Simulated assay, not measured.
Amino acid sequence: MGAFFKNLLKNKVMLFMVLPGAIWFFFFSYLPLVGTIVAFKQYRFSREGFWASIAKSKWVGWDNFKFLFSTNDAYVITRNTLLYNLAFIFIGLVLSVAMAILLSQLVNKTMAKVYQTGMFLPYFLSWVIVGYFAFSFLSMDRGMFNQILGWFGMEPVQWYSDPKYWPYILIFVSLWKSIGYNSVVYLASIMGIDKSLYEAAMIDGASKWQQVRSITLPMLSPIIIIMTLLAVGRIFYADFGLFYQVPRDSGTLYSVTNVIDTYVYRGLKTTGEIGMSTAAGLYQSVVGFVLVIVSNFVVRKIDKDSALF
């Protein structure tokens, strides 16, 4: 016990540095875990307060979880959530790394910063604004795309009524908004690579592509694996704003835009069942946790040094 307190005193400066973050995590991440019991109750609000409401609510066990899987929509929302997230992870990874490499190769660093800032800005736009941007392009009457089609004598497309276009639209919009932000992490890692490695490669006559393939990508592999593992942990979470605001909650598009988060929101808005919503969140968290553990285990078996933990 004495050694424990001795280590605390020895590292007190570092501990004080992490204290604000630890307090934030305690109040906003760990303390709310107690509320997961609502997932197993038929929660009913009481004027006596939150904890009294939990205590007086009826215990229903797994009934709230059955809501997610007892309807015909269960397969659709699970499929959409998984497939979209897989596309976002892998396509986004390739494009983010490629963009970071291209920016690092620009000789004019001023222009590189201009390009990087321009790509970074969409990340700060809310999905409501992005939804209106998309509507200005896809509107049936005044949308830019339909006006262009009209110039070529083609019939206008009812974008918000035809589901076949929306998987591509949603993937494009998501990548447009996030690729600049994600590329910053990889660009920072590239900037940290020892320049003498590239100088030695140039002396040996290596082309730019050979330098990227033999130096940049191998040096980026640890951060790529870590970022992918973190993304896998949220594979059962969908960006609510993307799937709700951009398609404008069009009922005809539910077959390709309905995901777990939007399904739970609509169910909560219709029935007011807080227990069902909590059950969905707990389900997503547990599945994400298991996926991270399994993925990290596989990575550790292949390359121990590249594992997250």
Rank of each mutant, 00 (worst) to 15 (best):
G131F: 09
I179Q: 15
S139V: 05
F137P: 06
F172N: 00
S178T: 11
Y181N: 13
L175D: 00
Y165D: 01
V185L: 08
S178P: 15
Q105A: 06
F152H: 12
I171S: 04
S178I: 02
S96D: 11
G118W: 00
Q116P: 00
K113T: 08
K109L: 08
K113P: 06
S104I: 04
L106D: 09
V173D: 00
V157Y: 08
Y123F: 14
M140Q: 10
V157T: 11
Y160H: 04
K164F: 13
G153Q: 14
I171G: 05
S161L: 15
A98N: 06
W127M: 12
I148L: 04
P122Q: 02
L103S: 07
I148C: 09
S139R: 09
L187V: 09
P122E: 04
G118Q: 02
Y186K: 00
G118K: 02
L125P: 01
F124E: 09
I129S: 14
F133E: 04
F135T: 14
S104E: 05
E155P: 15
S161Y: 14
L95P: 13
G153D: 14
S139Q: 07
I148Y: 08
M154F: 09
L95M: 08
F152C: 07
K113C: 12
A98R: 06
W127H: 03
L138N: 10
L102F: 15
F172W: 05
Y165G: 12
L187E: 00
Y186P: 04
D141F: 13
G150I: 15
S189W: 03
Y132T: 13
W159R: 00
S174L: 02
V157F: 05
N182M: 07
N146M: 08
I179M: 13
F172L: 14
F133S: 07
D141R: 15
M144T: 06
L102V: 11
V114C: 05
I148Q: 05
V114L: 05
S174A: 08
W176A: 09
Y115N: 05
N108K: 05
W127R: 08
M144V: 13
S178W: 06
V173G: 03
L170P: 03
N146D: 04
F172G: 02
M191A: 07
Q147D: 03
S96W: 01
A188C: 02
Y186L: 02
P156T: 02
L121C: 11
L95A: 07
F120P: 11
V97W: 00
S96I: 06
D141A: 10
L103A: 07
L187R: 06
L103M: 05
Q158V: 10
Q158A: 12
A112G: 01
P163A: 07
R142T: 12
